[in-house]
Design a protein around this nucleic acid. Structure first.
Lengths: 297, 297
DNA sequence: TGAAAAGTTGTAAATTTACTACATTTGATG
DNA sequence: CATCAAATGTAGTAAATTTACAACTTTTCA
């Protein structure tokens, strides 16, 4: 009589169910995974199919499809279709799909773009705005800013250097861990050290964090919150990006880190105000000498 | 900007069904209007109700509800529910919105994530698959691979180094333009030089392209096709990413470049086959010694 | 006005769809 | 190899949706 009881279900399932399917993948049984594949391959078709047709497409029995739906915390097949429809409506049918052995250039290109976008979407939802604001605060007030990362995160630090360098702020970046250590030994309480690491378990970075804090610098980690590195930081900007794929290379996580750098840099310029932005333009104009002019300029 | 006419077509096709109901109102019969009212009053409930409960709520018969659905150009009640569910999901597709002066952390964070995703979407559509395939071909056959970029693109080249280094292929990366030049002077026809530049108008990179080609190396540009640099390359992987924003910093273009590197690296490993991927895993495992173990491992 | 026509609505039966209970298979373990 | 647990499928059942048709309204025009 009072169907109002169903209200909440719609809301707490705000998570993209396609994303949920990929993340849940390990917990599925063999047949359930077949269902998942068929749905991911063509979600638009799935929402217009009955449980029978979908079962046939996945070459499993109908109850298997039903169990699949239940495992994703939906009430059953029709409820699952509603969630799926909502996910598809959301503009992003982007899903973190793994590249397969037999994929051709078209497939892997598509998959990588889509996984990257899906990861950014996840990152966007997980990032903590107040912390960003706090970090921007610190950066604008810093006497000196250092960016350190190793391995795949080195290029992220490198990129941060490039961005913040334009701001006319003393900014430091080293690849060499000894230089990193020495740099941190000279820190003061007005300095900010930003350490980048996806896993947060790189020993030398953890040590650097300790050294920097020992000298009263503020240490910001772009890393996982509960990691050894995260625990050593004053502030942690964590990005809950799904684990990277089969390819044994950091891909999506690093893109999310870079985007975060963009965000910090943007926050920085906004905080510094208009006059400061003119300065930025000047830096850009200076580069012109080293370039071929654009036609018509 | 797309012409108005196109806009409307798209709009019509994907129109919010709730709006459609209100607009259609005049064409409904008395009973159908009762159904419309009930649905509009509480759409969240509607999508979780069966045709029977909804009919009861509107105090009409079940076929009336069904006719109501058909009148809105849906296949029937379940199909109508799907449309309704999609309308209720707050679908905001990603758009490249510029950060404004007065934006707070929440706004600029959101805008940057969304612009980045929007740019990736554009990049995905503009990238030329056959060229990717061709470049992967070249890379797998190369004796030596070099990645060079300057300024903001330096970190992209840096990242490429990090990726390809794991493949146990001779790979070269320098920040210093003199080193870059010298390296190119020693090129042979079996070498591939990848040059990265968003604008493609950086003088010294163009010169490097000329040097490399002079030594019969294959030059691949990740740059704009019609740029001075593009014209010097054997192959150009161009990314039609919308011009970067007001912030006077390369942001989205660089993310697209990095994603392209991911794609090349993935193509590379796929081409090299399974056995090769084990090698990658070994590289990853080697890193373990420099890390704190994960709990439970 | 009133009778045919067109349109609206509801009842009941038919059909499709989804779900449950149970049986069979698979695979792991001692 | 026997045994148990998990996974999957079969078949039957319940539920929901749709169709067909009849009853009832409203409209139209002689």
């Amino acid at each position: 009589m009072a169907p109002e009881s169903n209200y909440n279900e719609v809301f707490d399932a705000s998570m993209n169910i396609l994303e949920k399917i990929t993340q849940h993948n390990a917990l599925f049984s063999k047949s359930e995974r077949k269902v998942a594949e068929v749905i991911l391959a063509n979600p638009q078709t799935a929402i217009h199919s009955s449980i029978a047709t979908l079962a046939k497409m996945a070459d499993v029995s109908e109850p298997t499809v039903n169990r699949f739906c239940r495992r994703l915390d939906t009430k059953g097949y029709p409820d699952f279709k509603l969630h799926l429809a909502q996910s598809l409506a959301n503009g992003t049918p982007y899903v973190n799909r793994h590249v397969e052995e037999h994929d051709g250039p078209e497939e892997y290109t598509k998959k990588i773009f889509e996984s990257t976008m899906a990861s950014l979407e996840v990152a966007r939802q997980s990032v903590d705005i107040p912390t960003i604001n706090r970090v921007v605060d610190l950066l604008t007030q810093a006497q000196k800013i250092s960016f350190f990362g190793l391995g795949a995160s080195a290029s992220v630090a490198h990129d941060a250097l490039n961005k913040f360098f334009r701001f006319n702020v003393p900014v430091v970046y080293f690849e060499d861990i000894l230089m990193q250590r020495m740099s941190c030994m000279n820190c003061t309480e007005d300095d900010v050290v930003v350490l980048i690491s996806h896993t947060g378990r790189t020993k030398s970075l953890v040590e650097i964090a300790q050294i920097a804090r020992g000298n009263d610098a503020t240490v910001v980690g772009i890393t996982s919150r509960d990691s050894p590195l995260g625990k050593e930081c004053n502030l942690v900007l964590s990005l809950d990006v799904p684990e990277d794929t089969d390819m044994y290379m950091p891909m999506a996580s690093r893109i999310a880190q870079l985007t975060l750098i963009d965000i910090l840099a943007t926050g920085f310029t906004l905080r510094r105000g208009n006059k400061f932005r003119e300065n930025l333009k000047r830096v850009k104009d200076t580069l012109r000498g080293s370039r071929f002019d654009k036609k018509g300029e």
